[in-house]
């Protein structure tokens, strides 16, 4: 498997890993957002959704493993690229003209990614951990999933971090969406402008969609 090793460690191979894991995460976010929207329909809808996921647990576990692999490769590879790319320019420019030639979204992928990573750790620690490890049977019986989520959305700093992370997620996705197509070799004046617009629309929907929940429940005070 020397050729595969060569490919994955080449400059284009590393881009390819970012694009393919990123694409998987793009799809995952759509499904995640659709599921979470049940929060707006009250405790029964949300608890019912979580219980449905419980019924198909073996399948969910497999998807979670793929998701874990995608996250690990995306994060590890992204960090490695950042480090190597820093080394490719040991002496920085005194005057940096990058605002003239590239978008802020493309230049801040490492920063936005890092803050999303911090959010991800906190997110898994709060919701994923409690739903899966913290005596799930007891939780399921009492239909408490909704209360846990809404409870966290009453904590001002949690909501604030959530919103900041979602804005940066929007930044990250706006560049990542079209970037994945470019890496796969899909760039043509015929469809690239459309891909860029779709990416921006996708990024806005994801950022606004995910941020709307903590904002709504924080402002409404968790009234059912």
């Amino acid at each position: 498997m020397n050729w595969l090793n060569n490919f994955l460690n080449s400059s284009i191979g590393k881009k390819f890993v970012m694009a393919i894991t990123g694409s998987f995460l793009l799809i995952f976010l759509i499904i995640h957002l659709i599921g979470n929207i049940t929060l707006f329909f009250g405790p029964d809808a949300f608890n019912g959704y979580v219980k449905t996921l419980d019924v198909i647990k073996p399948l969910i576990r497999v998807i979670e493993l793929v998701l874990l692999a995608a996250f690990v490769f995306h994060i590890f590879n992204g960090f490695r690229l950042w480090l190597e790319n820093k080394r490719a320019r040991p002496v920085e420019y005194k005057i940096n003209g990058s605002t003239e030639n590239s978008s802020i979204f493309s230049r801040t992928m490492f920063i936005s990614g890092s803050i999303i990573f911090i959010f991800l750790v906190l997110h898994l620690g709060t919701f994923f951990w409690r739903f899966n490890v913290h005596d799930p049977q007891q939780l399921a019986d009492a239909h408490q999933y909704y209360d846990i989520v809404v409870g966290f959305f009453q904590i001002w700093w949690y909501v604030l971090l959530y919103i900041i992370a979602m804005i940066l997620l929007g930044f990250h996705l706006n560049h990542g969406f079209q970037s994945a197509f470019q890496t796969f070799g899909l760039n043509s004046k015929k469809y690239t402008p459309l891909i860029k617009k779709l990416g921006t629309i996708y990024a806005i929907i994801m950022a606004v969609g995910f941020a709307s929940m903590p904002i709504y429940f924080f402002l409404s005070g968790g009234v059912k």
Partner: peptide, 18 residues
């Protein structure tokens, strides 16, 4: 060409289009 490009210490493209 890409093998040599990588060996020479050029960075990886992150599609900023600068």
């Amino acid at each position: 060409m890409i093998k040599v490009m990588d060996e020479l210490g050029f960075g990886s493209c992150t599609n900023t289009y600068a």
